[in-house]
Computed example of a mutant assay.
Amino acid sequence: MAYAEGRIFNDADSHIMETRDWLIAHADPDIRPKLHPLAIGSGGRMVEKAIAHADQRHRDPAAVADAEKNLMLRKGWEALGAFDPDERRRALDLLGFSSQLVFTTFAITHFWGEFDQVRATPEVLYGGTRAHNRAIADFCRGDKRLLGVGFVPLDIPELAEKEIDEAIKLGCAAIHIPSLPPAKKSPSHPDFNGVWARLQDADVPFMLHIGGGGRAIPRAFHNNDRPVTDFLGGGENIRSKDFMTIHVMPEIFLSTMVLDGIFEQFPRLRGGCIEQGAMW
Rank of each mutant, 00 (worst) to 15 (best):
G235C: 09
K241S: 07
I210D: 00
S255Q: 12
S240G: 05
L232I: 15
A216H: 02
P250S: 01
P267M: 07
M207Q: 05
V248Y: 11
E264P: 02
G211T: 06
I262R: 14
G261P: 08
F266T: 08
I217E: 06
D242M: 03
F206S: 01
R268Q: 13
I217P: 08
I217R: 12
A220M: 09
D260S: 10
V228K: 08
M257N: 08
F231T: 02
T229W: 11
H247Y: 14
H247N: 15
R219C: 00
F231N: 04
D242K: 02
M207N: 01
T245K: 12
N223C: 01
V258L: 12
V228G: 13
R270W: 08
H222I: 03
R270N: 14
V258M: 10
G261M: 10
A216R: 00
I262L: 14
L208A: 07
Q265H: 13
I238L: 08
G234L: 06
P267A: 04
N224E: 04
M244G: 03
G212L: 04
E251D: 13
L269E: 09
A216N: 05
H222F: 04
N237Q: 07
I246M: 15
H247Q: 10
L208K: 00
F266P: 15
G212M: 04
I217V: 15
N223Y: 01
L232Q: 14
M244I: 06
Q265N: 10
G235I: 06
G214W: 04
M207T: 09
V258N: 06
Q265P: 03
V258F: 09
F206G: 01
K241V: 09
M249R: 07
M249V: 13
L254D: 00
I252A: 07
T245W: 07
G234I: 06
L259H: 13
G235L: 10
A220I: 13
I262W: 09
D242I: 01
E251P: 00
R239V: 02
E264G: 02
F231S: 05
I238A: 03
T256W: 00
H209C: 05
R226T: 14
H209D: 06
S255M: 06
L269M: 10
F243G: 00
L232T: 15
G213I: 03
I246Y: 06
G261C: 11
V248S: 05
R239M: 02
G212Y: 03
G211R: 03
L269P: 05
G214H: 03
G211C: 04
L208Y: 13
H209P: 12
R268H: 12
G261I: 06
I246H: 05
T256P: 00
P250N: 01
M207P: 00
S240F: 02
T229A: 11
P250H: 02
D230I: 01
F221L: 13
V228F: 13
I246P: 09
R270V: 04
D260G: 03
P267L: 07
V258R: 15
V248T: 08
R219L: 03
M249G: 00
N237E: 04
G235T: 10
L232N: 11
T245G: 08
E236R: 13
R226N: 07
R239N: 05
A216I: 05
G234M: 08
E251F: 11
E264T: 10
F243W: 14
N237P: 00
T229R: 15
D225M: 11
I217M: 14
